[in-house]
Write a protein that binds this DNA or RNA. Structure first.
Lengths: 230, 230
DNA sequence: GAATACGTTTAGGCGAACCTAAATAACTAC
DNA sequence: GTAGTTATTTAGGTTCGCCTAAACGTATTC
């Protein structure tokens, strides 16, 4: 029972991606959240939500939010796969700077054919994570989305490895790169100031390492996992 | 005096490309020809023509056809550059089969940024012709569009080099490849049957060569230039 | 439980890009 | 030069994806 792959419009793909991402937190995606994420008015979202529900891509309980159907989820994952493989390809093959791949991939993901994506993936040796650490769905629509803690959640003292950073803001990415905070980097929290204050951490680096301080908002965009002390 | 590069929609870019191509023959592009080429109704073309004229991309004399303005032409050439560099990249780097690059490039050309195109071009050593022999416009919007004769125009006996083939029909491309007719190939016309009859020719090939026969319609899609006898 | 605040939906509109059907202009043939 | 064909335009309509303003539900607070 293969779902027929009818081509979806660019906007529809964007909605599904946004809903997928919002839903990942647990709660059904609210109209308002979708609107904020896509930078369009809530009223417009209401309209599109009706159409997506009609097409069977989401279920909608009025006033209570939206959930992807199985069909909607695989469509979202198809787009996500395109996006992330494009990001890999742009960085690794075409030497795109870290902070600019997202926007370019955002455009191309709606135009690239499945064949192109597969050829790019093959040329890269079928990567499993994109340059920002996000896992790449397989062709048949599965991902292991690890539930990672963020830098804002972990306790002082823990040794951590950065697994993933949010990629939707170029400026933020540039700043994180400056700090040496990128997937794979090893960090340790030295201090967390009270009242949502700055988090001071040690960032291992090629030439030794450095002390850095970040605010909570930024720390929440950095996903980490514990690393065995040694 | 640099023309501001406001982003054009996909359909608009397609219209400009089509008009550019039709105009190259000499005559201003007619509503009907544009409609045929884009596979849309003449009435729709009338509507779009008004909008393009309003934007200053074309001039329109009612009932007499349409011409690109300088601004329209550079916009067309920008799109054409994207298209052709994409074709090069897909063939040379990603090993796309000859007959499938056109359609893929047709989609991507509307989404790819100037930066991506430049990076691809650089990776290829700034090619000057695409895989079908079409010249690639430069970044500043110039091309030397050689006025070539087609296989249907030349006399019996001449030694010829294939310079370019029309790329807009995948099946035709597959067939031409089968016959060994691709840019760079050397051919000689052995016979032209009267009354628009088949054209018999000798096609040089790696392993010696072969005799082939093609109809006039096909011959008109193959552009050639004379080669000094030796 | 009434008042308020906030989130959501409905109503009504708009531009882009297509369509069909009907009207009109231009060319062609007799 | 009139008739007929063909090309072009106009008129009116559709869908998609957005908008603002107004109405409506839900949750919260006193």
């Amino acid at each position: 029972m293969t779902t027929p792959v009818l081509p979806l419009s660019g906007p529809v793909e964007d909605y599904l991606k946004a809903i997928y991402d919002l839903e990942r937190v647990g709660e059904p995606a609210s109209t308002n959240d979708i609107a904020l994420r896509l930078a369009i008015s809530p009223a417009s979202v209401s309209g599109m939500v009706r159409r997506l529900a009609d097409q069977g891509l989401i279920t909608h309980e009025p006033y209570r939010g939206v959930r992807l159907t199985r069909e909607g989820r695989t469509a979202a994952l198809r787009t996500l796969r395109r996006h992330r493989i494009l990001e890999c390809y742009l960085t690794e093959v075409l030497n795109y700077p870290w902070d600019r791949v997202h926007d370019e991939a955002e455009q191309l993901e709606h135009a690239a054919s499945e064949e192109l994506i597969d050829r790019m993936a093959a040329a890269l040796g079928n990567p499993v994570r994109d340059p920002h650490g996000a896992p790449i769905p397989t062709r048949d629509g599965t991902v292991e989305e690890a539930t990672l803690r963020t830098l804002a959640d972990v306790a002082q003292g823990e040794r951590l490895r950065v697994r993933r950073v949010e990629d939707d803001d170029a400026e933020r990415l540039r700043y994180l790169a400056e700090l040496g905070i990128r997937p794979g980097a090893l960090v340790r929290i030295l201090d967390k100031a009270p009242f949502e204050g700055p988090i001071t951490l040690w960032v291992d680096d090629a030439g030794g390492g450095a002390t850095r301080a970040v605010g909570v908002a930024l720390a929440q965009q950095v996903f980490v996992e514990a690393v065995a002390d040694q």
